[in-house]
Amino acid sequence: MNAVDIKELSHVYTNSKVLHSLSFQVSQSEIFGILGPNGSGKSTLLKILATLLHPTYATHVLIFGEELRTAMQKTRQKMGVVFQKPSLDKKLSVFENLKFQGMIYGFSGNTLLNKIHKLLDAFDLKDRSDDLVEELSGGLQRRVEIAKALIHSPKLLLLDEPTTGLDPSIRKDLWKYLKLLKESDVTCLISTHIMEDADQCDELLILDQGHLLALNTPHNLKKSHEHNVLILQTSDADNIALFIRDKFDLKPTFIDSYLHIETKEAENVLTTVLEAFPNKLSMARISEYSLEDVFVRLTGHRWKT
């Protein structure tokens, strides 16, 4: 059984369609990423999955085999949600935040205490248990936020841009915990616009303007383009583009006034261009094919966040 199984999901806000007939599955115990720039519809998708928004249309939206829209209470019990905007009560301690949330899910007594202590252990929060949340650093607050979402031991964790606004070391820290979760059989569905995050997912869905553009492992997405990218900035772009096209049978493209050439022999192309057009290049760069290039190639427009 899949953790999430979506078929033909569309959503329309008053006048604009933000999700266009999405269909995809998320297997159990994987870290599934949804990569898209701002406005791609990933937040809407997450809201629908979190039961905060009714989709305009869907053939089905199944969470562990159960229809989200009809078995809402039941699916809510199986899901934890980490919001982009923190949902912690800053006036309460770490312990109290976990306790009150656990009670909301119907746990009490020793069962609840055990759950809290396990989470405090797992997220290395034991020493800070009695501190008010407002006294914690941003990174620690993020950890408490995830612990809170896990208080009822959900099998599926939804994370809406959990790393936005965090500095790189805290991001790394967060991924450490996500990978631990995966090992304990929790499926993570994470939306992000950060390439480094997307790269760490087991599977990645690329979303742009509500359309599903690609769905594969980050590795395969990049492998299907086994090229490097040569990027040139030049005052004589038209002639250089023609030259490269004729000489190497490649198709240079203009992206924001830069010349992009995808090729296996980027060094060779570059030296040839340098010989033929001395002093015409103001910048040249060879980079490995990245998820960003995948996105650019799929959409034909630049990645904007």
Binding site: L52, Q73, K74, M79, K85, L88, Q101, G106, A149, H152
Partner: peptide
């Protein structure tokens, strides 16, 4: 405003 209710809304309450 501070987001606390989000966590309540997604719970089975």
């Amino acid at each position: 405003n501070e987001g606390y209710l989000q966590g309540v809304f997604v719970s089975p309450i």
